[in-house]
């Protein structure tokens, strides 16, 4: 599905000196080849928006009293919510893996006088943080401690 890119993509500020054919998107965009992962990554935006508002709802209910809170717990048991959370979990893990893979290259060679650690170390730190926080939060939420 070859679609036109934005008609002004990569055009000079003054119109070109001869008639040009409009710019085309790469054939595979947006769902083919490597673009699929990129497009899915962006699409997780929906999941995050919904998750943000779901947490907001839950916290609001917690402030509204026991009945409201229990309503949240009850609602979460419906297949709709369980299904959404299952998809969301996959989405969140996908975001983590894709983004953490890119993360080291976004580190400037130097911030002031400080140099970032080498790539494998950054990656190890990220995954340790991710797994550590997830484990801690899970245990706390599941009633393991506190």
């Amino acid at each position: 599905m070859s679609r036109n890119a934005h008609p002004d993509a990569m055009a000079p500020s003054k119109p070109g000196r001869t008639r040009t054919a409009p710019p085309q998107l790469p054939d595979q965009f947006p769902f083919g080849g490597r673009y699929l992962a990129y497009t899915l990554f962006d699409l997780t935006g929906i999941l995050y928006l919904l998750l943000g508002f779901l947490v907001l709802c839950a916290v609001w209910s917690l402030g509204s009293g026991e009945a409201a809170w229990n309503g949240v717990l009850e609602r979460n048991r419906s297949m709709l919510y369980v299904g959404f959370h299952a998809i969301a979990l996959v989405g969140v893990i996908f975001v983590g893996i894709r983004f953490f893979g890119f993360f080291p290259k976004a580190q400037p060679p130097r911030i002031g006088p400080v140099k970032p650690p080498p790539k494998p170390v950054i990656l190890a730190m990220l995954y340790a943080l991710w797994i550590g926080v997830t484990a801690f939060l899970s245990i706390v939420l599941a009633g393991g401690i506190f």
């Binding site: 995050y48 998750l51 947490v55 839950a58 979460n76 919510y81 369980v82 959404f84 959370h85 299952a86 969301a88 979990l89 969140v92 893990i93 975001v95 983590g96 983004f99 943080l129 991710w130 926080v133 997830t134 484990a135 801690f136 939060l137 899970s138 939420l141 599941a142």
Partner: peptide
Amino acid sequence: TVLLTGWVLVVGL
């Protein structure tokens, strides 16, 4: 992402 994983895991599932 770091925070959501545990939340979704426990509260959502």
